[in-house]
């Protein structure tokens, strides 16, 4: 009995971490961007683009590592575009994020269809070396990116709290004018933050298509970028609580899969859709101030302008 139970707990835990890993990577990335004052509604699009290029390049080259590199490059390209719009050209950050999401949704299918002619899917990655495989436990699915995701949390915390870069990053999200007056380039800092976000959301995308799954399928992110965004808000823009939120959302997902078609005594069948909508509903409750209060960085979403 206890053996069964511990095995069940282990599997649930593993499933939780597995589903949470891309959320964690994405949330840590988004955290850098948002703490620097750049809203990132485009996490979803970056992750989707990265997932596509990871699978496409891995399928063509036969190497998962080239896939990872391509994922990062693709996400960075999107991040640069976002930076160009938000930082250099002081455009509306939400509009830019929405544009990137829509662009990604279209472009991945258009390119996938043109290159592989499988209705937007990439070829299945069934050759050895085309995917990132579990390192220790095939049952747990502990591929390298899971560890990277887990490591990204203390690293993000340390960078933000204990380093010069972090101090400046936090400052630029609160009051860019003060940073500028201290002789530090606001634009450069924000670009760095946006690029860090690209790096991490690129890894998250690679995780989806060449670690968790064996190939890219259209819209495979299915809102996970927004769940990561929800986790950032839920974590009140702090790394460790955001990590906690990712785990909770990951657990919800693992539970939703378990509960499919299961009847709960005295309640009846739990609608899976309810559990799927729960992260969004919880975030709305939080934002409404019913569960504590989430205070965003003060300068978030406001383009920095120097001239009078």
């Amino acid at each position: 009995m206890t053996g069964d139970l511990s095995a069940f707990v282990f599997l649930m835990l593993a499933a939780t971490v597995r589903t949470a890993a891309p959320l964690i990577l994405c949330a840590m990335g988004g955290l850098f961007s948002e703490r620097s004052g750049i809203v990132d509604v485009g996490l979803e699009g970056k992750m989707l683009t990265a997932a596509f290029f990871a699978a496409a390049v891995s399928a063509v080259t036969g190497s998962a590592w080239w896939g990872v590199a391509a994922a990062i490059a693709a996400a960075e390209a999107m991040a640069l575009l976002h930076g160009l719009a938000c930082i250099t050209y002081r455009g509306n950050q939400v509009v830019s994020g929405v544009a990137l999401n829509i662009l990604a949704a279209g472009l991945t299918v258009v390119l996938g269809n043109a290159w592989f002619a499988r209705g937007g899917q990439t070829p299945a990655l069934d050759q050895p070396g085309q995917r990132l495989m579990p390192l220790f436990s095939p049952r747990a699915g502990d591929n390298i990116l899971v560890y990277v995701a887990l490591l990204s949390v203390p690293l993000t915390w340390w960078l933000l709290a204990r380093t010069r870069f972090g101090l400046r990053l936090r400052a630029v999200g609160e009051m860019p004018l003060a940073v500028d007056a201290a002789g530090i380039s606001v634009g450069w800092l924000r670009y760095l933050a946006v690029l860090l976000c690209g790096l991490l959301s690129g890894l998250a995308g690679a995780y989806l298509s060449i670690a968790q799954n064996a190939g890219f399928s259209r819209d495979m992110t299915a809102g996970q970028g927004f769940i990561a965004l929800a986790a950032i808000i839920f974590g009140k823009w702090r790394p460790v609580p955001a990590f906690g939120a990712c785990l909770v959302f990951g657990l919800l997902d693992a539970v939703a899969i378990r509960l499919q078609g299961v009847r709960v005594p005295g309640f009846g069948e739990v609608p899976v859709q309810l559990i799927q909508a729960l992260p969004y509903l919880l975030t709305m409750f939080l934002l409404a101030g019913f569960i504590g209060r989430a205070v965003a960085p003060k300068a978030i979403g406001i383009p920095y302008e120097k001239e009078p």
Partner: peptide, 26 residues
């Protein structure tokens, strides 16, 4: 044209939002 899918329209929508919205100052 088999090389082009309907999603090309989605790409165009995204680019219009990008250029007339986010990059309006370009």
């Amino acid at each position: 044209v088999p090389a082009i899918t309907r999603e090309m329209v989605v790409v165009i929508q995204g680019l219009v939002i990008l250029f007339s919205g986010a990059l309006v100052n370009l």
